[in-house]
Design a binder for these strands. Structure first.
Lengths: 243, 243
DNA sequence: CGGCATTTTGACAATCGTCAATCAGTGTGG
DNA sequence: CCACACTGATTGACGATTGTCAAAATGCCG
């Protein structure tokens, strides 16, 4: 049975079969959540750790003038803030951008997982650190890359993250984001996001067909955007079996 | 004896006297580091956890075209990446912007601290989470605030962070950053950073005198930039003694 | 005083945002 | 099947913000 949560955590640490069954058990009863629903609202004091098993969610902040800034994506396999309880109050909102299958873990469940397996502990730590690392790369992108390269960079990131949980093959994946959502992520207007897409299409980097994006020139797109997957800290792809 | 590290961690958890002496002992032998020196270089595999006791350091990435993006500040009391060893390789550089007094803790020392006191464990976790939270606020600022408000927001952040470790009184603090460093932080040109400074001065929000900035209208500056200190998750200032 | 880094300014160009209209895709009801 | 409504994508025209280049002013330090 494939499980995106387990599949993702494998990148953080070698898990034993025992670890994997514990993790599977912990997320065994996911709930379905519709699109555009709020999982955790800014200012609230969250009770559960959420794991996105399937679908697409994001963190965002809304500013005084009503504009929105998306500050992170939650893809299948990702979990929200292991230890938010320490901060007391969450300072942003987490909401779905696609219908999701989500497991809610009680704080105690997480503590048990962490206490009983040093490997799980390590894997969850790894996930937290990758979160920070990704934020820092986003800052770099927003600060120093022009719009088209910034978009290119994000499209590369999504590809690698999807591949990490087995949801992208052959350089293509489902584009679950509207251009407005892209612009809220990249900090630009929708019109400009649209123009950047156009440019990437015209330069032969990508092709978009009914919500599926295919990166037709990955090497070129990576070079164009200065993308290196190092900040995602993923395990290298297994080489084809030695014999 | 005042110690910025302890003073900062008090915001994360109530520490006992015993906790505090352990922390003090751990950072008892700091080294002096000059300006513009690298503490941890991108791609390296760091051996120590660094604690900045005094001075000013930052994390940054350098892009292909030579430009630099600063992705975080390390003020007195801040520590660098508790558990970097889990990621194997650090994906950015940490360097000083001012002469610093820095304690280098062996991984084992940190583990001992964490193992022996649940309060210290909690306080260090808190520091990590505040790091992420700050990154997310920076993303929001870069994405959705125009240059002048972005600068205003950063100046507010610095004030609150300095106050949190007792290094700012009466809304003024040492401005240890050149305008070039500000522009590398905010993702804009130095010329534009300069213009934003000018605007804040002309609008009576700030006054700068030989490397000391005074925020002359804090309430106004906070409102102008949409700043709320909530994302820093600091403990509220103690009220003046009840009697 | 003389060097040097930093700040400041102006002129101009490039990038990006806003507004408004059109186009395309999808689902609904008749 | 088609008309209709609705959302999202696309485009053009124009204005605002920001970057680049170059020069001058300021401040600091030996």
């Amino acid at each position: 049975m494939r499980n995106t949560f387990v599949e993702r955590l494998r990148h953080g640490c070698d898990l034993t079969d025992d670890d994997e069954s514990r993790l599977l058990e912990a997320v065994a009863e996911p709930v379905s959540v519709g699109v555009q629903e709020v999982l955790i609202r800014e200012g609230a004091d969250p009770q559960f750790v959420h794991v996105v098993l399937d679908g697409f969610a994001c963190r965002y902040k809304r500013l005084e003038d009503g504009t929105r800034q998306i500050i992170g994506y939650l893809l299948p396999g990702d979990m929200c803030d292991l230890h938010v309880s320490i901060l007391g109050e969450i300072d942003h909102t987490i909401g779905t951008l696609q219908p999701c299958s989500i497991a809610r873990l009680a704080a105690q469940t997480v503590e048990d997982l962490v206490d009983r397996s040093p490997r799980i502990r390590r894997a969850l730590w790894w996930a937290t650190l990758v979160d920070v690392s990704t934020c820092r790369e986003w800052i770099t992108s927003m600060g120093r890359r022009p719009a088209d390269r910034q978009l290119a960079h994000l499209l590369c990131e999504l590809l690698f993250r999807y591949q990490a949980v087995g949801l992208a093959t052959d350089n293509s994946y489902n584009l679950f984001l509207t251009q407005t959502e892209f612009s809220d992520t990249l900090g630009m207007s929708t019109v400009h996001a649209n123009r950047s897409f156009k440019l990437l299409r015209e330069d032969g980097y990508i092709r978009v067909n009914s919500k599926v994006i295919t990166i037709t020139n990955l090497e070129g797109l990576m070079k164009f955007s200065g993308f290196s997957p190092n900040y995602l800290h993923l395990r290298k792809q297994e080489k084809s079996k030695p014999n």
